[in-house]
Design a protein around this nucleic acid. Structure first.
Lengths: 258, 258
DNA sequence: CGCTACGCCGAACACTGTACGGAGACCGAA
DNA sequence: TTCGGTCTCCGTACAGTGTTCGGCGTAGCG
């Protein structure tokens, strides 16, 4: 299913054709270049993660999807951990980079940051397995694609008139907020997925229990009885943007003064 | 080692005392109440995680630490996943709650938020295994201890004069930032731990490679050559606080105006 | 005394990540 | 051509993992 056109006749595979040797199943010209590549493996792992989640990713299953043995992967990837790191960076590689044109206008750099962080958040939410992996993978920010993202952000802030230290701080605040928010959201979403229910339905089913459970906590109780019900999916979106706006206010204020 | 005083004579355990039966090792009055409890299990899992990390936590090892069989745990805990959720909430149970006295003074509620978020951040950084677990555990915020934390924060913001919706937003921004920052920090720290090196040494050893790797990215390159070297461990602390301050500025500004 | 309920656990199952060694095919040199 | 050397692939094996199931012994109750 995932065979590329460079794969020369899958029937060479010894296990695939257990019949007796004969001219018709003989290797015949055998593949001249590696059947597996790191990119291919990463891409297939990515697809598997997206379709079946993190606990479905095993070396054996991944190998099978590539018409390869499990241990063949280890010639291209040192570890499962390294594989996961590569996949995470692969995700960041799909995001658009922030552009720096006319960035001296606050409205412009603010919009650029909103766009960039929204992209990161959307990626994490669309691939909820990432949050469980981000913890295991130290040093994500050394991946080439994350570096490109960072570079673009720093360039943006530079064009906006921030000096390097400030720009770094801004990036830390904004990305910290984005990752934290997205983590919580994705955790919620994968809990949903495990129950196989839609967001709104699950919420409706859960809410009475939550309301009951929060009875000892008056503020929380009020929050869940009057505030939460109407906002769910759309609420997450607007909530993220509201929060980001507050942060950008803080940044812009600090920039204007001293 | 982890035996509680209610444990009546550990030598009943069949495996612990393989000697021949005799009046001295006979069961004698046998324990009258369950040898295991959910709290005990959670506490021991917590200790095991802290000392040996996430990949050292297996049901068998945990059982062994409690002088119990692996499968005995399942009478008190449904899953490993449920166990992890309980442990995470257990961590939050150790944090101090925000106090709401004199909260109408901005300096006071700001300080209270700083204190609270610093506690959360410190907890995550001190228990780096949490970040890998937060992803798997959906719905942490339904745990009783996290609820207590939220309630205290909401009460604080209420006392500070925020209305409920605003207070919720503030909590989202501040906690999102805190969790995100702590996640990145903890990932870095557990990568360190895996290499068994100190933070500064590892940084020194890694920096040249990073500087080289960032050559295609001018801003990043400058950042790593001129900015980063002097700040590492202390830098993380102050960086977190600087970012938080910016956010609080944004919040206070929004509060002051319409 | 017997009975049920409960807490505990040994064995078993289906899987996991990965080390190892061998097998086959390619390339360049002799 | 033949002979190595190198590279990729993979079957096997090992030491674990989470969890189910059936049974066992005790405690408390009638």
């Amino acid at each position: 299913m995932t065979a590329k056109s460079e794969d020369i006749a899958p029937e060479h595979r010894t296990a695939a054709q257990p019949g007796i040797a004969s001219p018709w199943n003989r290797p015949q010209k055998r593949r001249t270049q590696p059947a597996l590549s790191r990119e291919q493996i990463v891409a297939e792992a990515f697809a598997l993660l997206d379709s079946d989640g993190i606990e479905a990713l095993s070396m054996r299953k991944l190998g099978a999807r590539l018409n390869a043995g499990a241990t063949s992967l280890y010639t291209h990837v040192a570890n499962k951990e390294e594989l996961l790191a590569l996949v995470v960076d692969h995700v960041f590689g799909e995001l658009p980079l922030a552009r720096s044109e006319n960035a001296e206008d606050p409205a412009v750099w603010r919009a650029a940051i909103v766009e960039c962080t929204e992209a990161v958040r959307a990626a994490v939410v669309r691939h909820p397995w990432m949050v469980g992996v981000l913890g295991d993978v130290g040093m994500i920010y050394l991946g080439p694609n994350w570096m490109r993202l960072s570079e673009a952000l720093l360039a943006l802030m530079d064009a906006a008139g921030f000096e390097l230290g400030e720009a770094n701080d801004v990036m830390g605040v904004v990305m910290g907020y984005t990752i934290g928010t997205a983590t919580v959201e994705a955790a919620w979403l994968s809990a949903l997925a495990k129950n196989g229910e839609g967001e709104q339905e699950f919420m409706d089913r859960l809410l009475p229990a939550v309301v009951e459970a929060t009875r000892p906590y008056p503020h929380l109780h009020r929050l869940y009885t009057v505030q939460v019900p109407e906002e769910v999916e759309a609420g997450r979106d607007s909530s993220f943007l509201r929060g980001l706006d507050v942060i950008l206010d803080g940044i812009e204020a600090r920039r204007a003064k001293p």
